[in-house]
Amino acid sequence: MLGDGKSVVLSFDDGPAPVSALESILRTLRENEILAEFYVLGDEVRRYPGAASMIVSQGHDIQNHSWSHPNLARETEQNVRWELEQTQNIIRETTGVTPTRIRPPYGAGGFRGHLDPELADVARELSLTIVTWDIDTEDWKAPQGLGPGKIAYIETQFMQQPRKVSFNVLMHVQSATARDLPALISQLREWGFAIAEP
Rank of each mutant, 00 (worst) to 15 (best):
L2E: 10
G3R: 08
K6Y: 11
V8R: 14
D13C: 12
D14N: 15
G15S: 05
A17D: 13
V19W: 13
A21K: 01
L22E: 08
I25G: 02
L26Q: 06
R27N: 08
L29N: 01
E37Y: 02
V45A: 10
V45M: 11
R46W: 00
R47T: 08
Y48P: 09
Y48C: 01
P49I: 08
V56Y: 11
Q63D: 14
E77I: 06
E77L: 08
Q78T: 09
Q86C: 14
T87C: 04
R92D: 06
T94E: 07
G96D: 13
P99C: 02
R101K: 14
L115C: 06
L115G: 03
D116T: 10
E118R: 14
E118V: 08
E118D: 14
D121F: 07
V122A: 03
A123P: 09
E125C: 01
S127L: 07
S127E: 15
T129H: 12
T132N: 06
T132S: 09
W133T: 03
I135A: 01
T137Q: 12
D139H: 03
A142M: 12
K150N: 01
K150D: 02
I154K: 08
I154W: 00
T156S: 08
F158P: 00
M159K: 15
Q160F: 09
S166R: 15
F167T: 01
N168Q: 07
V169W: 03
L170T: 14
M171S: 11
V173W: 02
Q174G: 12
S175G: 02
D180K: 04
D180E: 08
D180Q: 02
P182Q: 00
L184H: 01
L188V: 06
R189D: 06
A194P: 01
E197H: 09
P198M: 05
